[in-house]
Design a protein around this nucleic acid. Structure first.
Length: 309
DNA sequence: AAGGTTACCTGCCCGC
DNA sequence: TGCGGGCAGGTAACCT
């Protein structure tokens, strides 16, 4: 499902609901998704408190802090303090949802974290005192992924920025670093079509198959143009429309097609604002020309041949 | 090095 | 009703 707006939506939902909670059990039902789930996940995050949740490209980062009161091994020796960071990617079909304690495990639920509030004076109290008081009962964080293209792995704060998954990532389109000048530099001498160029995470992160088509429509740019063929005017318009499209989608809570849902299980509704995605054979909202579908790099692209040149 | 293709995996929908 | 083919929101490992 998830492109930048959907991942951002999930992160915001999680931040509202599980900050300050303590990991009280870790259940892993799959050995491997896109890659192996760390065998020591349980050992590394049990009795840790969730201190921060953020999005990086299409990854969800859940920061944890050791609860020093509980951080001892079986012999009663105090363990080294660590700041683990859980890295989660939803792949095509992944969902990360919050459930209550009565939840029954469903097919393709691969990891379930049980979360609880903590006593006064712990790190949870400092992170989120209000949530701590209102979440004394158990909460579940459930990762479900039918196609198993997702990722669940673990690093720690010191190694986060150099992590293998983040080394080759391009510009964050909603950050200040995303400027017209940088976009222009990326497109220079690049002879691939603009649609697949937008989806290349080593150049710009977060734009997937839906928002590439939508941003190009809003910019009036045909998906088969090469990136290097764009004029300065095209690039300025595209830069603006990438940002606006992603922001509109975040405001709508993302897009729900088959299986995306927000952390609370609700659907997003940006799909009702699609101008071209999934609209093959239907009339363009602007000019009534029928929307076309072509395949580029093995993925469907949708466009209006009259509005996009 | 850029650009293209293929594989990973399950589910669903369509036509025969 | 069953079966095969095509398609699905992503990424990375290969090849040329």
């Amino acid at each position: 499902m998830p492109e930048l707006p959907e991942v951002e939506t999930v992160c915001r939902g999680l931040s509202e609901n599980i900050l300050g909670l303590n990991v009280s059990s870790v259940e892993v039902y799959a050995e491997k998704l896109r890659d192996f789930i760390p065998a020591d996940l349980n050992k590394k995050i049990l009795n840790h408190t969730i201190t921060k949740i953020e999005r990086k490209a299409k990854y969800i980062l859940i920061h944890l802090a050791a609860n020093m009161d509980l951080q001892t091994n079986g012999d009663g020796n105090v363990l080294e303090p660590r700041s683990p960071v859980l890295i989660i990617h939803l792949g095509m079909s992944g969902r990360l949802t919050i459930q209550d304690e009565a939840y029954q495990r469903k097919k393709h639920d691969h990891v379930i974290l049980k979360l609880n509030g903590l006593q006064l004076g712990t790190v949870a109290e400092r992170v989120s005192p209000r949530l701590r008081r209102t979440n004394d009962r158990g909460t579940l964080l459930v990762f479900n992924d039918a196609r198993r293209f997702g990722v669940i792995t673990l690093t720690d704060l010191e190694n986060l920025s150099q992590h293998k998954l983040f080394r080759k990532l391009g510009l964050e389109p909603l950050a200040r670093e995303f400027t017209v000048a940088k976009l222009k530099a990326l497109f220079k001498n690049r002879n691939k079509n603009i649609k697949n160029t937008l989806m290349d995470a080593s150049l710009i992160v977060g734009i997937g198959n839906i928002y590439a088509s939508e941003a190009l429509f809003r910019s009036g740019i045909h998906p088969e143009r090469t990136a290097s063929s764009l004029t300065d005017k095209d690039i300025k318009k595209l830069h603006e429309q990438i940002i606006v499209t992603l922001e509109d989608a975040i405001r709508a809570g993302g897009s729900t097609l088959k299986d995306f849902s927000k952390a609370n299980g609700e659907s997003g509704y940006f799909q009702y604002q699609f101008k071209v995605y999934g609209r093959e054979g239907l009339p363009c909202f602007t000019c009534k020309t029928l929307i076309e579908r072509i395949v580029q790099g093995g993925r469907s692209s949708f466009f209006c041949s009259k509005c996009q040149k």
